[in-house]
Design a binder for these strands. Structure first.
Length: 510
RNA sequence: GGUCCGUUCGUCUAGGGGUUAGGACUCAUGGUUUUCAUCCAUGCAACAGGGGUUCGAAUCCCCUACGGACUACCA
C-alpha cells in the first residue's frame, strides 16, 4: 500500500467553548499527526449560522494553544488548503451536490418544515418510532423523484426553497474498517435520505466534511464515537463522488463519560459536577453565565494533557507521566480502547501534583509571585524559591503553597484554636520563653543549628517534643501542622522568629 | 422503538487460550516524620450472566442483561 502523508484535522463547531472531550479528540489527532510526521489542521465547522456563538472560535484556538498543540494549518495560522472556515468555503460545495444529482445519487426536495412534520406525525401514529425520509417515504413527498421534471424545473427557476438529499439505495451493506473498532457494517435500509445541502445555500456537516476532507487531503478522520452512525453515509459519499481511493481511514474514539451515573460528558455539565469541563474559563456571551476552566483553577497544561491522553489510551507499560514529546513518541491508535471512560477528578489532581513536584523551587517561584502580589505580599525571588522548595511536596497546585504557607510572608494574625486548646498548656508560655532565649543566643540560624539547639533544650529540660514543638509551631506559624519547624524557622530568620514568639506570648490566651 | 458501538477492582486500565488476573488513582492499616504532607510497605477490591468450542476460556463463538451513541434543513 502506498504511503500517504498523514494529515488529520480537528473540526469543531464554534457553538460554544470546547470541552475536555473535544480537547482529547484534538490531542489524539495532534499526537497521531506528530507521531507520523504529518500535519494537524484546525477546521471550523460553522455551516449552521444560527448556532454560531461569538468568541467560540477564538476560545478554541486559545484552548489548543494553552494545551500546547501547534496547528499546522487553520484560520489562525493560514495554510495552502484554506479557507479553513466552512462558512468561507460556501461557494465550493454546491458543485459537488450538483454532481451527485447529475449522477443520480441525490435529488431535490421541496418539502416545507410543516410537511416534514406532518409526515413524521403520520408515521408516528402509524407506529413508527423514528420516521425517516427514506426509500419508502420519499415517494409520498415533494421531490424531484416524485414530481414531473417540468414541475421541478419550474420550482427551481422560481427559486423555491429546496434542499438536496442523498438517494439512499435499498438493501446494500456499507462496510468500512474502523481503525479502533474493526469492521463496521450497516445496511442502507437503516439509513435515511440525509439532507446534504440546505435551503440556505450551505451544505450540512455530512457533505461539507467529506468535501473538505477530500480537498484538504485528509488521511485519517479521528473523531468521537457519536459520529459512528453517520460514518456509513460518509463512506457512501466518497464512493458517489468518485473519491474511493482518497477516502481517509476512520477512527472513532470512545466517549468521555460523566463520573456520576452515565452518559457522555457535555458542555452543559459546566461546573455542576464539581469540576470544570472546559480547559479555560468561559463566559457565555448571551447569558453571561460563567464556567470555570482547568487553566484558571491552577492546572498545568502538561498535567491536563497527560490525564486526557490516559482517558482512553495507555502505552502498555506502567509509565504514567508523559511529556508531550513522550506522548507523541508513544502514541498509537492501536492502544486506544473501545469502551467509554468515566472521568476521574482525583486522578486529574494527582497528575497535577506530580507535575508540580517535578519542578524546583526556582521554577515554582515565578508562578507563586503573581499570586502573592494579588494579596499584596512581596518577597524576593530566592526567598520565594526556598519556600516553594520546602512546601511543594504538600501541594497539588501552586496556590496551595500560598494557602498552606502564608505565614512565610506575614506573621500569623490568629492561632489555630484546636492546637491552642490541646497543646497550649499552662507551662507553655514559660517553656516557649526559655526556648526563645536559647534560639536568640544562636550564632548561626540554619536548620541544623536550630535542630541541635532544640534537642539540647529538650534534654536539659527533660521534656518531649510534644511538650514544646506544638507551642513553638503555633507561635511562629499560627498553625498546628506543617513543614519542618527547623526549616521554617531558618527561612524566616532569627529576628522574625523571635518577634513572632513575643507576639504570640502576648496574644495567646487560654 | 430501531440501528450501531461497548462491558476486567469504586475509577483509569494491562492482559488476546494455561497468570497467585498485574499496575495506577481513591480508601484503609502500618512504618518513617515533632506534627501535617511526602515517602515506603501492606491491605480492600474485578473478568456482567448463561450457553457453547476446547484437555483448558478473562481471552474464541452465540444468546441474554446492562450501558452508551445516533435516530434535525445541529454538528
Amino acid at each position: 500500500m502506498e504511503q500517504r502523508r498523514v494529515r488529520v484535522r480537528f473540526a469543531p463547531s464554534p457553538t460554544g467553548p470546547l470541552h475536555m472531550g473535544g480537547v482529547r479528540t484534538a490531542l489524539y489527532n495532534y499526537l497521531f499527526a506528530k507521531k507520523h510526521g504529518g500535519d494537524f489542521l484546525l477546521r471550523i465547522e460553522d455551516t449552521d449560522r444560527s448556532r454560531y456563538v461569538s468568541g467560540a472560535e477564538q476560545y478554541i484556538v486559545d484552548a489548543l494553544a494553552w494545551c500546547q498543540m501547534g496547528i499546522d494549518e487553520g484560520a489562525s495560522v493560514g495554510g495552502e488548503n484554506g479557507p479553513y472556515r466552512q462558512s468561507e468555503r460556501k461557494p465550493m460545495y454546491k458543485q459537488y451536490a450538483d454532481q451527485l444529482i447529475e449522477s443520480g445519487y441525490a435529488y431535490y426536495a421541496f418539502d416545507t418544515p410543516e410537511e416534514l412534520n406532518e409526515m413524521r406525525e403520520r408515521m408516528k401514529s402509524a407506529g413508527v418510532a423514528s420516521p425517516q425520509y427514506n426509500a419508502v417515504t420519499r415517494s409520498g413527498m415533494k421531490n424531484s423523484l416524485t414530481l414531473p421534471a417540468e414541475e421541478v424545473q419550474k420550482r427551481l427557476n422560481a427559486n423555491e426553497k429546496h434542499v438536496i438529499r442523498i438517494k439512499m439505495p435499498r438493501n446494500e451493506d456499507v462496510k468500512f474498517e474502523d481503525v479502533i473498532r474493526g469492521w463496521v457494517s450497516v445496511n442502507t435500509n437503516n439509513l435515511d435520505d440525509k439532507v446534504l445541502f440546505k435551503s440556505d445555500g450551505m451544505p450540512t456537516y455530512h457533505l461539507a466534511n467529506v468535501v473538505d476532507d477530500y480537498l484538504m487531503n485528509i488521511s485519517h478522520v479521528i473523531r468521537g464515537e457519536e459520529w459512528l452512525p453517520s460514518a456509513p453515509l460518509h463512506v457512501l459519499l466518497y464512493q458517489y463522488l468518485g473519491w474511493d481511493t482518497h477516502m481517509p481511514k476512520f477512527a472513532h474514539l470512545p466517549l468521555i463519560l460523566r463520573p456520576d451515573g452515565n452518559g457522555k460528558l457535555s458542555k452543559r455539565d459546566g461546573d455542576r459536577l464539581g469540576f470544570p469541563v472546559f480547559p479555560t474559563n468561559w463566559t457565555n456571551p448571551e447569558t453571561g453565565e460563567k464556567s470555570s476552566g482547568y487553566r484558571e483553577r491552577g492546572y498545568y497544561p502538561e498535567a491536563f494533557n497527560n490525564m486526557l491522553a490516559f482517558l482512553g489510551w495507555n502505552p502498555g507499560t506502567t509509565k504514567e507521566l508523559f511529556t508531550m514529546d513522550e506522548l507523541i513518541e508513544s502514541f498509537s491508535l492501536d492502544r486506544v480502547g473501545r469502551a467509554g471512560a468515566k472521568f476521574d477528578f482525583d486522578k486529574t489532581n494527582w497528575f497535577n501534583q506530580q507535575y508540580l513536584r517535578k519542578q524546583s523551587g526556582e521554577e515554582l517561584a515565578p508562578q507563586l509571585k503573581p499570586l502573592l502580589a494579588e494579596v499584596g505580599l512581596v518577597a524576593d525571588d530566592s526567598y520565594v524559591a526556598n519556600v516553594c522548595e520546602l512546601m511543594k511536596e504538600r501541594a497539588t497546585f501552586v496556590k496551595d503553597i500560598l494557602k498552606e504557607g502564608r505565614y512565610f510572608f506575614e506573621a500569623p494574625t490568629s492561632y489555630d484554636e484546636k492546637t491552642i486548646k490541646k497543646k497550649w498548656k499552662e507551662s507553655t508560655p514559660e517553656i516557649i520563653t526559655e526556648l526563645r532565649d536559647l534560639l536568640g543566643s544562636l550564632n548561626s540560624f540554619d536548620p541544623e543549628s536550630i535542630g541541635a539547639c532544640f534537642k539540647i533544650f529538650l534534654e536539659e529540660k527533660g521534656l518531649g517534643f510534644g511538650a514544646v514543638m506544638p507551642g513553638f509551631r503555633v507561635s511562629v506559624t499560627g498553625l498546628g501542622a506543617g513543614a519542618s519547624m527547623n526549616e521554617i524557622a531558618a527561612l524566616l530568620g532569627k529576628d522574625e522568629v523571635l518577634k513572632r514568639i513575643n507576639i504570640a506570648l502576648k496574644t495567646i490566651k487560654k
